[in-house]
Amino acid sequence: MSSPSDSETELHTRIHQQKVISSLGRRALETDDIDRLMHDAAATVAETLGCDYCKVLELLPSGNVFLRQGVGWQEGIVGEAEIPTDTNSQAGYTLLSEEPVVVDDLRTEERFSGPDLLIDHDVVSGISVIIGTIDDPWGILGVHTTDEIAFTDHDVDFVQSVANLLAAAIERHTYQDELEETVAELQALNTRLEKFASMLAHELRNPVTIGQIYAQHLPEEAAPKAVENVVESFDRIENMIDVMLVLTRRGDAVGERAPVSLAEMARDVWDDVDTREATLVVDIDLVIEADEVYVRHLFRNLFENAIRHGGSDVVIEVGTVAGGFYVADDGNGIPPEDREMVFEPGFTTTADTDGTGLGLAFVDRLAGIYDWDLQLTESDAGGAQFEFRNVAMSDQSD
């Protein structure tokens, strides 16, 4: 039986190296343990090339490199050794040359003389490549042996491919860490915001309640319009407090659910709103499970929004859709390109008058808290129609 030719052996070696790269690539996508991946990559490279040592060097802010992971080295070296990146070291020369460095025999090497790490381990031959980009290197992947080996171009490509896999995994891991830090910071910020909102709401409710009580005893016959404005102002402040709590605390702000008649609530809210010459049409007979305080605010915000944008003589209708209800008007409507933005906190087209940009944001947030499906469409009259589906109904509904 004849022995395989050199070309067959080389082909077999290249196929094996490609399989190793493929396996490492899958592992790099699956693992979140970057140090374990570095160690396994070093062990795999050393085994595949038949070498004694392999190392993953991390470039430090000082300019030196740190032996973060590796195999074959003396005990206490990995995770401890810091190597200079001057021209006397293979690592330093690799960074300066900006290309893979192959050492046939370190004993006769003229480009650099060390470093001590390689000399102390009787290293003779090796390959070192950059992990990362030339402009922004993360570190170096190096493989070494105590025997003199004539590494091929395919061996160099293999080591560089593994380094590229590590670079991609490190970048993903770094991004994930930064994302987790950002999420943690946002969560902490939200917690502080919720506490501040709760404290502010508590501090505001007491004077508002006192003001509302005194407002009820004001002599309307002396200045009816002034009394009306005072009462309305206190009501608006109370509305803003509840809106703010829902926007900042979300589900924690909403109380227990109870039966709420939408027809009765709509008419009751209408009596408290400055309706001008607007008209309300109620064609609904549903009782839902919700917190009546916030359903009241929902109707109030939708009614005021319709009057503010649809005109003083706008016609507003509250009706039934499959699985829920709707509030529609015959105003100018909302262009399709703006229908997502109108629910963003702060979005308003009437900031120069009395728009706060919080009303529809509150409506959207409340729908989310109750798991209602909210859709903004065009009404039959060409105005805006807010549809709420998947609404929990009370047993009292007909």
Rank of each mutant, 00 (worst) to 15 (best):
H144T: 10
L247A: 00
M199T: 05
E194M: 03
P219A: 09
I213E: 12
N164P: 10
E228R: 11
A188F: 14
E238C: 01
H154G: 14
K225C: 03
P259C: 14
W138F: 13
S261F: 13
H202Q: 07
A168E: 03
G251M: 07
T275V: 10
A197R: 03
E194G: 07
D147F: 14
I241S: 02
K225T: 12
A188H: 09
L200K: 13
V159Y: 04
T248Y: 00
T275D: 09
T275W: 02
V208M: 04
V159C: 01
P137R: 07
F196G: 03
P207M: 04
L204K: 00
G211C: 06
E228A: 15
Q160N: 13
R257S: 12
L189I: 02
P137E: 08
E181N: 07
L165K: 08
D235A: 03
L245D: 01
A253C: 08
L193Y: 01
W138G: 01
P219L: 06
L247N: 02
V159F: 07
A188V: 02
P137C: 05
V208L: 15
A201C: 05
S198F: 06
N164T: 13
R172N: 01
R236Q: 10
E228K: 15
E264L: 15
L179K: 14
V254L: 02
M240S: 04
H173C: 02
P207D: 14
T145V: 15
D242M: 14
P219M: 09
A278M: 15
L200H: 02
Q187D: 03
R276V: 12
L141H: 07
D242A: 11
T209Y: 03
E194N: 01
E181M: 09
A184Q: 15
V143C: 06
